[in-house]
Design a protein around this nucleic acid. Structure first.
Lengths: 203, 203
DNA sequence: AGGGTATCGTAGCAGTCACTATGGAAACCA
DNA sequence: TGGTTTCCATAGTGACTGCTACGATACCCT
């Protein structure tokens, strides 16, 4: 399916590629730390080009976050039993956060404290974090109804705990931790969860 | 012990109070988000007053972080058995991060991604986080030699895990979580650790 | 009283921020 | 070919950034 030809002078650049490069800058430096001039240099574009294609720095950031979620985002695998899914989730985070750019998670540690001018961008990240947390909680309530977890299980607590671990791993990845460092966390959690192995397999 | 009287026109303000108010601004908005004008307004001081007293924005931030650690910082209580100390630590974090300003931990979530001009301030926070992690690890190696933990215990893993939980709790506090929310994490961890209760009490 | 010293308030520094006005150029359709 | 549309590149915009020169002022010590 070909994109409809439109009138007017055609673009001389690929917006998707520009967005990807902008994402990398945001990922590395955060929203406030990524100046428009830095974004221009990284994309090889002029300011008007960026603004015509993405409207504003905030919108560009929103698009970048969406691209990040599409390209690098992940969640609990639905095809695994809950405890295994949690372990796989944490291990995947340990791997993803420490490989390639090694900058942790853009959403988790991207935008936490800012000036009031970046309020909208901060809200974008906050919403994304809330959504991730909600996803965890939903999966766990499912697990209770499926009998994977006992009725007495503290769903809110477990989901927030896993979320906190992910976010903390992102912080540590930003501080230079490698996979082998974060993998220790995964094994520690595995050991802790192993004590509940019989529970997770009982119905 | 009186502070030595010195020559020159005396200060018309209390540097400690100014530092405290500056800390609050940094805490709320982060290093980059806290503009000098915002700091001036919060302290009620002029720019030259701030600069004569604190040299630069970076040094002011360093001082603020040190004050933060003195005033709000905490660690594992050495007078408790390890597992209890961990629980107390997490519960205290849940309380501290969500009460008063409710902004989480300045160090954990203060400065993660920034432009290159804030590199020094970011290094300050990173060093502080490393130190916290080291403190946890030392306490746990002690616990192994004391027999509180088995020789096979993964000290690096446990310390990083507790650190990650703390950092994650700070993120969630910034996102608006209250004590009751974070307390769920504490109880979840307590439940998980309870499975190892016999271990922590065996020698 | 007068020198030494460190503060004061006013005013403004150069540089960067995100963003845009403007006129020409390259595609479309009639 | 003319009209329309959308892009291009150049060159800025005002507002804000962290920071400081400057002359006056208020304390100490001799």
């Amino acid at each position: 399916m070909e994109t409809m030809r439109k009138a007017g002078r055609p673009r001389t650049f690929d917006p998707d590629e520009a967005l990807h490069r902008a994402l990398m800058v945001f990922w590395e430096r955060g929203y406030e730390g990524a100046s428009m001039t830095a974004l221009q240099e990284a994309t090889g574009l002029t300011a008007p080009q960026l603004y015509r294609a993405f409207e504003s720095k905030e919108r560009l950031f929103e698009r970048a976050v969406r691209l990040y979620q599409d390209e690098y985002g992940f969640g609990l695998r639905p095809d695994l039993p809950l405890t295994e899914a949690v372990i796989e989730y944490l291990d995947r985070a340990a791997r993803e956060y420490t490989t390639e750019p090694g900058l942790g998670c853009l959403v988790s540690t991207g935008l936490l404290a800012t000036g009031q001018d970046a309020e909208a961008a901060a809200a974008t990240c906050r919403a994304e974090r809330d959504q991730a947390l909600t996803g965890l909680r939903q999966r766990m309530t499912e697990a209770v109804t499926k009998g994977e977890l006992p009725e007495t299980a503290d769903v809110a607590g477990l989901s927030r705990t896993v979320g906190a671990l992910i976010q903390g791993m992102s912080v540590q990845a930003r501080d230079g931790a490698g996979y082998e460092d974060l993998a220790h966390i995964v094994t520690a959690v595995r050991t802790l969860l192993a004590a509940f192995g019989p529970v997770s397999e009982a119905r």
